[in-house]
């Protein structure tokens, strides 16, 4: 039986998202498709699959993205789908461990890529917020002031996300001085 669940995760919560998808797989709900905030599951044996997700450097539809997806599939994993630059894979647990980033260097690179994506979005929201605030004050427009508040809230959330990811990246960088 198929089951659709709508759930929202921020980009910096990908660990939490991955954990949730694996918890579902452990309960016998294997991921079959992933779209914006929408996950589809099918019944499977509990723990039959392990799920991994990652943000690619290139768009999943680009030749580099397709090459990478084909490479991961070649290792026995199944490509489930994409949401923007994020791709989802699953692999049968009976076929051995499934990791996409097994060492600190690639984990650090992955986190760096997400941070580089979030920073311009944060700057854009600050810019839009300031612009709307100026217009709102100048024209006495409540709508613009409200838009400015919304942009500020999104920018603040993105800032918190970037801080969280940076802390994680720094922890890994410290560890990388001692271990691979």
């Amino acid at each position: 039986m198929r089951q659709v669940i709508r759930k929202w995760f921020w980009a910096w919560e990908f660990d939490k998202e991955e954990q949730w998808l694996n918890d579902m797989a452990a309960q016998g709900k294997a991921l079959v498709s992933a779209r914006y905030c929408t996950y589809e599951f099918e019944d499977s044996a509990p723990g039959e699959y392990a799920v991994r997700l990652e943000m690619l450097e290139h768009a999943p539809d680009s030749s580099q993205g397709q090459q990478y997806i084909a490479f991961v599939e070649e290792t026995g994993a199944e490509y489930i789908g994409k949401v923007m630059k994020w791709v989802y894979f699953r692999k049968k647990t009976a076929d051995g461990p499934f990791e996409l980033h097994g060492d600190n260097a690639t984990r650090i690179k992955h986190l760096g890529g997400i941070i580089r994506l979030l920073k311009p979005l944060m700057a854009l929201n600050v810019g839009v917020g300031v612009y709307n605030l100026c217009i709102g004050i100048g024209l006495n427009s409540v709508v613009n002031v409200l838009c400015a508040c919304m942009s500020a809230a999104v920018a603040w959330l993105l800032y918190k996300g970037v801080v969280k990811l940076n802390e994680k990246k720094q922890r890994l960088e410290k560890e990388a001085q001692l271990f691979e």
Partner: peptide, 10 residues
Amino acid sequence: LHLAAGTLYG
């Protein structure tokens, strides 16, 4: 040692 797919690709 089990190589992760992304690590191996990189």
